[in-house]
């Protein structure tokens, strides 16, 4: 088992190469500290999403090490979140799955609370999933292309969430939108082209 990260760090990647049957991204090294928004940039296909999946244990670490703070809790907003067809689950029922229904939701999320998932637009579902990841009792929030399908009001909501993150938690944000990364991240790691 890899040793723990240094004090104040939630997670540290050391010369990590990740992929599936073969390597897709890396080697890359960085540390995510509490209170910061760390951006992961780079061209399409460079392995940004695969890196997040390696952190969640669904992609393979071919070399290097990922060190986690003991008891680290993670939520992961996927680039294409699963949405079963016709599912009558309501917004607040989905939030309850991550114990994320105890936090006062943003204005843009309120209309979604009693709306079935099946009736939501792509952007609405995206925003609800993102909010679930923020409102869940976790230390590290992984966001994979969270601006996809979002309108301007939803992007403003996302911006507020990132700016009001607090000192105890961190966000690892993957986006191909360089401007969004620069506006919202404390640091950016570029995975290259």
């Amino acid at each position: 088992m890899p040793p723990e990260p240094s004090a104040g760090a939630l997670i540290t990647l050391e010369e990590v190469t990740v992929g599936y049957t073969g390597p897709v991204a890396g080697p890359v090294s960085f540390t995510v500290h509490a209170g910061e928004v760390l951006g992961l940039g780079g061209a399409n296909g460079v392995g940004k999403s695969t890196l997040l999946r390696a952190i969640t244990g669904t992609a393979r670490v071919h070399s290097g090490a990922i060190r986690r703070m003991p008891g680290l809790r993670i939520s992961h907003h996927q680039q294409r979140p699963a949405r079963p067809p016709e599912l009558p689950l309501l917004g607040h029922e989905l939030l309850r799955l991550l114990d994320a229904d105890h936090v006062r939701e943003p204005l843009a999320v309120i209309p979604l609370m009693d709306k079935p998932v099946r009736a939501m637009s792509g952007g609405q579902f995206q925003l609800l999933q993102t909010w679930a990841c923020f409102a869940a009792p976790v230390d590290l929030i992984l966001l994979d292309e969270p601006t996809n399908n979002l309108d301007s009001q939803a992007i403003a909501t996302l911006s507020d969430l990132l700016h009001n993150l607090g000192e105890q938690r961190a966000v690892l944000l993957v986006s191909h939108e360089q401007q969004f990364l620069q506006e919202h991240c404390d640091r950016i790691v570029d995975l290259g082209t």
């Binding site: 244990g57 669904t58 993670i74 992961h76 689950l89 799955l97 991550l98 992984l142």
Partner: peptide
């Protein structure tokens, strides 16, 4: 039931949180 639903919407929740 919560486990089945959670795994459907957040499939890597379990592996991410060990």
């Amino acid at each position: 039931q919560p486990h089945l639903l959670r795994e459907r919407f957040f499939p890597d929740w379990y592996s991410a949180n060990r």
